[in-house]
């Protein structure tokens, strides 16, 4: 290709015009400013060769006369800055602010997840990883609160304070009980997922507790006062006369205890009438009784 065309100047351009044209082209294609860009590198080579020849008056005269071709004299170029800067030695000119680590914030998250073990050479300090555990808790401990010891895989144990009213699946965070940090950084946390064992008597709905209470026929029909076991001790409860299986009574404040700004929940007691299988007098009484025509299945038939 014609060297004048390469630089985009006319054949009678003066030295200044040639210099200006070269500078303009070099700005966009210098390899040290465009590392890894092969097109720019080639273009720069062509431009430089053209400039080298045309900026030398003696060579330019010979080129114009057709005595030398457009390649001129080949000379081994000095090593490029780009090849030096990209090698390990380039760290000498690390941009200020890089704190000795060779990896930017972009890779930081990657290293957190990759696990520290495979990168022993890294001197960067990093917070220890969190560790996850699972802890089974008795129903009443979850209601009232307790302290339980969690055995760790390494044989050690940590005391876990279970707050009253904790929910199934809730995660307790114990600061600094996870993996130790690297190079002086903080240890990670222990994350303990709580699983609550079911209870044979009590069930939980939000902050309320539910239970079923067996009563005799006369306690239900005539009314009475009976002792009810609750998570926080036995309570005397009044059963109004005319109660039945399914009658729901409420013991205020006997559910999940109050905590923070939340009020205590209630204990809902559902009655279940249980007949005494050894009672013979009840059958005798009912035989002597006039039928009253009550049909408890009227609604049932309508629904079927």
């Amino acid at each position: 290709m014609d060297l004048y065309e390469t630089l985009g100047v006319s054949r009678d351009a003066d030295a200044d015009a040639i210099k200006r044209a070269y500078r303009k082209l070099a700005k966009t294609s210098h390899p040290d400013l465009n590392p890894g860009n092969k097109v720019a590198e080639e273009r720069f080579k062509t431009i430089s060769q053209a400039y080298e020849l045309l900026s030398d008056p003696a060579k330019r005269t010979r080129y114009d006369a057709g005595e030398i071709d457009d390649s001129g004299a080949e000379r081994a170029p000095p090593p490029r800055y780009s090849s030096q800067a990209e090698a390990a030695g380039g760290r000498r000119y690390q941009a200020s602010g890089a704190d000795g680590g060779d990896f930017s914030d972009i890779f930081e998250a990657y290293f957190r997840h990759a696990g520290a073990d495979g990168f022993e050479g890294m001197q960067r300090s990093s917070r220890g990883q969190d560790r996850s555990y699972s802890l089974d808790v008795d129903f009443l401990d979850a209601v009232c609160g307790a302290t339980r010891r969690l055995a760790l895989p390494d044989g050690k144990g940590i005391d876990v304070k279970i707050p009253a009213g904790i929910d199934d699946g809730q995660i307790l965070r114990l600061k600094g009980q996870g993996s130790p940090g690297r190079n002086g950084a903080d240890a990670g946390d222990a994350l303990i997922e709580v699983h609550i064992r079911p209870h044979p008597v009590f069930r939980r709905e939000a902050d309320n507790l539910l239970m079923e209470l067996p009563v005799t026929l006369s306690e239900a029909v005539l009314g009475s006062k009976v002792d009810v076991p609750t998570p926080t001790g036995t309570v005397a409860m009044t059963i109004p006369g005319g109660s039945d299986t399914g009658t729901k009574l409420r013991l205020r404040g006997r559910g999940i205890p109050a905590r923070g700004t939340r009020l205590a929940g209630d204990l809902y007691v559902t009655l279940r009438v249980v007949l005494n299988p050894d009672d013979t007098t009840l059958a005798g009484f009912l035989r002597t009784r006039e039928p009253d025509g009550f049909d408890p299945r009227v609604k049932l038939r309508e629904q079927v």
Partner: peptide, 18 residues
């Protein structure tokens, strides 16, 4: 210019190590 270039080569060096 030097600061931008140094950052550019930091990034390229990291990519190479990566």
């Amino acid at each position: 210019v030097l600061s931008l270039l140094d950052q550019l080569y930091d990034a390229r060096r990291q990519m190479r190590l990566f």
